[in-house]
């Protein structure tokens, strides 16, 4: 009956989103009067999950699962849910978890709510709040099936400590063959990814050309931030497609989003609105972004950004 949570890891270490979904699962389990079981795949330090309220970990270790595969991972999670008799399965909304969730839903014949941002507002009927219309609104969705899958938006619930003793149990599911083979993986080298980033520094057409991105990268470096861009910037080939954020690009839900030379078109804002704090740097005080931002600097990016970077370096040195 326990709530099952899939805790994603990378190179043996739990991702931050894994700890967040564990925190969330604990809160759901409290509402339902049950406990949390995690399913971990090729992760090492399972005890870490105890801090966030997990009392049991089904630990799978198998070299066949070193490379992510949606169908295979969905099958492993399904077997764990059946073993635990779980009625609620909690996932994050990383690219991988979003990929496997619909497959898992069909296999468990479960209703699935994605982009959930809060603990259930009711458990009977089981009702969750999710974003809709690309962050322009919220929707309360109730799931009527016996088994329910909740996809928790990244960085929406936060980490909540609930010390428990995460007892690890070796779990050896059947690992099915499947028809999609990964030939190669190409990771942008030593860069923070937009999905994982706490801070994102984003540049728009106001930066005039790709040769001016050095200052965006420097600002991002000081902050340990990911870099992103508006759609025209990637359409013009100034920056790679993978950096395009917004309604038709990657969604951003960071703690801090800094927009430089971006006008703040509705399609851009839709994709980044889930960020908690927004800063805009733009030389046009009428730019729509000022209506959406928390903090703003009306000024020329070519002066403001390098100055801000210098000041942040000093600040970091003092607060180190």
């Amino acid at each position: 009956m326990s709530v099952l949570v899939y805790t994603e890891s990378e190179k043996g270490k739990f991702k931050k989103t894994a700890l967040e979904v564990a925190s969330y699962a604990k809160s759901v389990a409290d509402q339902l009067g049950t406990t949390v079981t995690a399913i971990s795949i090729n992760a090492d330090n399972t005890a870490e999950l105890g801090t966030y309220g997990v009392s049991k970990v089904l630990q799978v270790k198998d070299a066949k699962l070193d490379t992510f595969n949606a169908k295979t991972f969905a099958s492993v999670i399904k077997q764990a849910a059946e073993k635990e008799g779980s009625k609620v399965v909690v996932l994050s909304q990383t690219a991988d978890s979003k990929y496997l969730a619909p497959i898992l839903a069909v296999n468990l014949d479960a209703g699935y709510a994605s982009n959930v941002v809060e603990a259930p507002s009711s458990t009977s009927p089981f009702t969750v709040k999710r974003t809709a219309f690309t962050n322009k609104a919220f929707n309360f969705t109730s799931i009527g099936t016996d088994v329910k899958i909740v996809g928790l938006s990244n960085n929406s619930f936060g980490l909540k400590e609930h010390p428990a003793n995460a007892a690890a149990e070796v779990f050896s599911p059947i690992i099915p063959e499947n028809g999609v083979h990964v030939d190669s993986v190409d990771m942008a080298s030593n860069k923070v990814s937009i999905a994982d980033a706490e801070i994102v520094v984003s540049g728009g057409r106001g930066l005039k050309g790709p040769e001016n991105w050095g200052m965006i990268e420097e600002l991002a470096n000081v902050l340990g931030a990911a870099t992103a861009c508006s759609k025209p910037v990637s359409d013009l080939g100034w920056r790679p497609h993978s950096e395009h954020v917004g309604q038709t690009g990657k969604p951003v839900a960071s703690n801090l989003y800094i927009a430089v030379g971006i006008s703040g078109a509705i399609q851009h804002l839709a994709g980044i609105n889930a960020s908690k704090v927004k800063v805009v740097i733009n030389n046009d005080p009428e730019a729509p972004f000022f209506k959406a931002a928390d903090y703003g600097v009306v000024g020329d990016a070519f002066e403001v950004v390098p100055k801000l970077t210098e000041k942040l370096k000093e600040f970091k040195a003092q607060n180190a």
Partner: peptide, 20 residues
């Protein structure tokens, strides 16, 4: 039908931007 929409909600209006 496995899931159903109960109601919608708009995000809380945002305070004014602080200019620096």
């Amino acid at each position: 039908v496995e899931t159903s929409s109960v109601k919608f909600e708009k995000p809380a209006p945002k305070g004014a931007v602080k200019l620096v």
